[in-house]
């Protein structure tokens, strides 16, 4: 589903946002974890064809999204700070995007129902609160139930109930053969739905694999708590 090979991203000032990442993700729910500035969002943007890698390849569902944007029909994304046009209604926007994904209006209604946004979908996007916008963004990402959904900080701006809702939705959609890549700081909650994890620090991969394998921190101790796993590998890397 996702294949990164020797991926590098170097900025003009000479610093690396991503340094030599080799990674393959087939299916499941991948937790993309790392401290601020670890390169999570940069990696997502390269995957989506928004940024060009300095070296290496990023393959999404067998294609390069930069040269073949049609592949994005099978991919949904929620950006960290999505800038939806404020002067259109949520429904107008989703129906517009549905055209490009070869979907029907019923798919728009389904996404709205899943995210519980039917109450305000006919209002202008500019009038949405941060939480409403986040839910709307996730509805946009899961529109038409694509093969892969990438969520960058999906639970930010959401209240605790909203967070639980989102995690439940991820779990439910995963059972319908939809894979997820989720980048977030709320690790304790994410651990409940993740099958895999990719831990980044300073643009490098410091750990990757199934949660069960990563959770065997030492011979005596095993955990599924993503926060503990993350902190363990981060400490190891710093030392």
């Amino acid at each position: 589903m996702v294949e990164l090979s020797e991926l590098h991203k170097k900025y003009r000032n000479g610093t690396y946002a991503i340094k030599n990442i080799d990674f393959i993700f087939d299916e499941g729910v991948l937790g993309l974890i790392g401290p601020n500035g670890a390169g999570k969002s940069t990696m997502i943007k390269i995957l989506m064809g928004l940024l060009r890698p300095s070296k290496g390849d990023a393959i999404l569902l067998g294609e390069n999204a930069f040269s073949n944007p049609a592949i994005l029909k099978k991919v949904g994304i929620l950006h960290e700070k999505p800038a939806y046009p404020p002067d259109v209604t949520g429904r107008e926007f989703l129906e517009f995007m549905a055209v490009f994904k070869d979907l029907e209006k019923s798919d728009v209604n389904e996404a709205c129902n899943i995210m519980k946004i039917t109450g305000y979908i006919d209002k202008k996007i500019g009038s949405y609160s941060a939480g409403m916008l986040q839910r709307f963004g996730i509805a946009d990402a899961i529109l038409g139930k694509p093969n892969l959904v990438i969520l960058d900080e999906p639970t930010s701006n959401l209240d605790p109930l909203g967070r639980i809702d989102v995690l439940n939705i991820i779990g439910a959609l995963h059972t319908e053969a939809i894979s997820f890549i989720v980048s977030t700081h709320i690790l304790s909650e994410l651990g409940k739905v993740c099958t895999d994890a990719l831990i980044l620090n300073e643009g490098r991969v410091i750990a990757e694999g199934k949660i069960g394998d990563l959770g065997r921190i030492n011979d005596d101790k095993s955990t599924c708590d993503l926060e503990m796993i993350f902190l363990h590998y981060l400490r190891e890397d710093i030392e």
Partner: peptide, 17 residues
């Protein structure tokens, strides 16, 4: 739209640049 990210949003959908 380039500055605030709306263009990025469009380009994240199956619309060619």
């Amino acid at each position: 739209e380039i500055e605030n990210g709306t263009t990025k949003l469009y380009a994240s959908h199956p619309i060619s640049r």
